[in-house]
């Protein structure tokens, strides 16, 4: 065991390791801070957090759980894309093949579907938790706004994914949804035409929703997620309760 630890320590001091992780070993607070600051992914998070911020009651981990759902959705979604053609009527047959022919296909599809439902639920729960704890108050007001954008992106992702099975439920849900869009004053009919790529829910609409669902909306989500996490650090860490000097009005 001791030998193994020695070898690991040697590895961490090797030239290759040091070229990747310049902070070095975590043998002091400075080194630990540098490790977080110098890593492109970790630097979104704080170097230090309050012990209280890790307690279940503060957040119920709702934001982290939402992120977990998002990651599951990305992985399962990419795998589902390997067996799915966004064309009429092949899309429906591919969805059925995923359920009955592809090995583990039904598991992946159901995991994607249930994670999508869970993510919508968790994002709403996260929003309510933030609201009732007053964590939207200054200095965190802008992160609340980013959170609202992320809620919208989550809902649009859910909605665009709804069309992809190309079954009756999908077709009529998107028919109804796109007709709601046409109620926008002046631009409504034009917007509906652009989003569907035609006058009815058809092959163009399926392809547009596929691109939105698999490329455009996930990219927007990733960018806003990064800003959302980074703002937690910049706004003084997770809200763990009111402190002296913080605004309490409202």
């Amino acid at each position: 065991m001791a030998k193994l630890l020695d070898e690991f320590a040697e590895l961490r001091n090797s030239r290759v390791w040091r070229s990747m992780f310049r902070g070095g070993t975590g043998d002091s607070n400075l080194r630990r801070s540098l490790t977080v600051q110098q890593n492109v992914f970790l630097h979104l998070a704080s170097v230090k957090i309050r012990r209280r911020a890790l307690e279940v009651g503060v957040t119920w981990y709702l934001g982290t759980l939402s992120l977990g759902c998002f990651l599951i959705l990305v992985v399962t979604g990419i795998l589902l894309m390997l067996y799915y053609h966004p064309s009429v009527p092949q899309a429906y047959a591919d969805m059925k093949d995923l359920q009955f022919v592809v090995s583990a296909g039904v598991f992946l599809r159901n995991l994607h579907r249930w994670s999508a439902h869970a993510m919508v639920l968790l994002v709403f729960a996260h929003m309510f938790k933030v609201f009732y704890r007053g964590a939207y108050r200054p200095p965190r007001e802008f992160n609340w706004v980013i959170g609202v954008v992320l809620l919208m992106v989550t809902l649009f992702l859910s909605y665009t994914g709804y069309l992809l099975p190309w079954d009756q439920l999908a077709f009529w849900a998107i028919t109804v949804g796109s007709n709601i869009l046409s109620a926008v004053p002046l631009l409504g009919a034009k917007l509906r035409f652009l989003i569907l790529g035609g006058h009815t829910v058809n092959a163009n609409a399926l392809l547009r929703f596929y691109v939105l669902h698999c490329v455009i909306l996930p990219l927007i989500a990733v960018v806003f997620l990064a800003v959302h996490f980074w703002r937690i650090r910049k706004d003084g860490g997770l809200h763990t309760g009111l402190h002296i000097g913080e605004k309490t009005d409202g």
Binding site: L194, G198, H199, T200
Partner: peptide, 12 residues
């Protein structure tokens, strides 16, 4: 972008 997103031929 507007011109590109509006299909000129529709197979409807």
């Amino acid at each position: 972008g507007y011109a590109f997103l509006s299909p000129n031929v529709l197979y409807e």
